[in-house]
Design a protein around this nucleic acid. Structure first.
Lengths: 138, 138
DNA sequence: TCGAACTGGAACTAGGTTGGTTGCAGTTCG
DNA sequence: CGAACTGCAACCAACCTAGTTCCAGTTCGA
């Protein structure tokens, strides 16, 4: 939803979008959208202006915002699930699994984020425009 | 927890382990462990034997079981969260976001799984042994 | 200066997921 | 026969997510 919202903002950079407009595209509701955009603002990806004629816009160029930025802004904590609680420290295996797994999982998560970092909001804007052109060309 | 369990089994291949033994290492309980090992069995990674002296063992060499295998066996569905429901199809952006995001997310998930596929249970067994040696060497 | 159009934020809800638990039936083997 | 296992269903508490309601604050134009 965060990436969808960013793409909406990236597609029309001159004017701000209201949370209601974004919510309409997401088939969701404005309050939820503001919550998400609020996280993106905390991460420095978007800016909001209050009051009438207010709304949301990107804080920097869509070419300088990657999917990884959005991911990091919205998703906190690791994505691969760790032990729900520390294993048995008296066990020769349990004693070490947390540290070993932590390293492996971090590497895997890093690989995923690296891939997310290769696509920008500008790319998505272009893709949606291209797909829309495909549709209307007929 | 699945990877931890597989490492337990990989460390002692000659005899079967009971779900109680694995649960002890995980500081969890046997039923939960059997649930997890059951998924791993469905995926062909482990075998179980019933009755007295029964238990669990690897279905193939620890060198031929990767973290990706364990991940695929236990975790169903995508890890990056998609739209909770389809966006507004009447919106020029919403109409295309699902397909566009699906492609990007699959790529990112593929990258993570590729990295998980590079580590085997045998690697983890070796790592835990090495760490244990580090401890007892003093 | 009022009121419409916005954001900001707290409080609450329904539904789903996760780790955990209990209880019991079935299997194996000494 | 009985101890030691797996297999399986049912249930529970805690937590998370998307969604909702309500209201306070800000801005700006008529």
């Amino acid at each position: 939803m965060a990436i969808h919202a960013l793409t909406m903002l990236g597609r029309r950079e001159d004017r701000a979008r209201t949370s209601a407009e974004v919510a309409d595209s997401l088939a969701s509701n404005p309050v939820l959208v503001r919550r998400i955009l609020g996280s993106l603002r905390d991460a420095g990806l978007v800016r909001s202006t209050e009051g009438r004629l207010g709304g949301w816009r990107l804080a920097r160029s869509p070419r300088e915002i990657t999917l990884r930025d959005a991911y990091a802004a919205v998703e906190e904590g690791p994505i691969l699930s760790r032990h729900p609680h520390p294993p048995n420290q008296a066990c020769e295996v349990g004693r070490h699994m947390q540290a070993v797994l932590e390293h492996e999982f971090r590497e895997a998560e890093r690989a995923m984020e690296e891939r997310l970092g290769r696509t920008t909001i500008a790319d998505l804007v272009q893709q949606t425009i291209a797909r829309e052109r495909e549709l209307t060309r007929r």
